[in-house]
């Protein structure tokens, strides 16, 4: 009996010591996840997620404080990449309602103040002082910062239209009860 207790105790102490030592010496300094997440985000620091910049958003994501759907300009691709990295399932139901957008300058309302140009993080607004501005749709990621600073409300967000080149077949509709393998 004593033998048994003794040997078990000895085993427990030895293994516990080894584990404790391992935890100390093999400790990983920093969570590399945050860096990886940051690399996935657009990096435009637009602040639409509610955090100051993409770095802060990545930190929140790594801690699990923010949903993977936090980044509107990133679109579905970013949501899916984040969800995969974090091993969570992304709820795309809300996201799809909005869809990707781009900014659009309403002719006639623009006074050429260049405020939006200074605000745009991707240099996607063309124009000069006192001249009408235009948005380069291809590089606009729809952060909407320009809309906020425009003094004459000449900028609106428009959904990116589906064209013949970007259209594709939607998912086929199959009756719910049919279990297609």
């Amino acid at each position: 009996m004593l033998m048994a207790i003794g040997s078990l105790t000895a085993m427990g102490v030895t293994l516990g010591t080894i584990l404790g030592a391992a935890a100390r010496y093999l400790h990983v300094e920093e969570n590399p996840l945050e860096e990886e997440l940051k690399a996935m985000l657009p990096g435009s620091q637009c602040g639409q997620c509610g955090y100051v910049g993409c770095g802060q958003a990545a930190a929140a994501l790594a801690k699990g404080e923010a949903p993977v759907t936090l980044c509107p300009p990133g679109g579905k691709a970013v949501i899916e990449a984040l969800a995969k990295k974090l091993g969570v399932s992304a709820d795309l139901s809300e996201h799809e309602e909005k869809g990707p957008e781009h900014a659009y300058v309403i002719e006639g309302l623009c006074i050429g103040c260049t405020r939006c140009i200074r605000e745009c993080t991707t240099d996607s607004i063309l124009g000069a002082n006192k001249l009408m501005h235009t948005i380069i749709v291809e590089s606009c990621h729809g952060c909407g910062k320009c809309v906020e600073v425009c003094p004459t409300e000449a900028i609106v967000m428009k959904p990116i239209e589906v064209t013949l080149n970007t259209w594709h077949w939607p998912k086929p509709e199959v009756a719910h009860h049919v279990t297609v393998h």
């Binding site: 990096g43 990133g74 970013v78 991707t122 996607s124 291809e138 590089s139 990621h141």
Partner: peptide, 8 residues
């Protein structure tokens, strides 16, 4: 997204 990142 990559293009935007480079621009930024």
């Amino acid at each position: 997204n990559e293009r935007i990142k480079t621009l930024v």
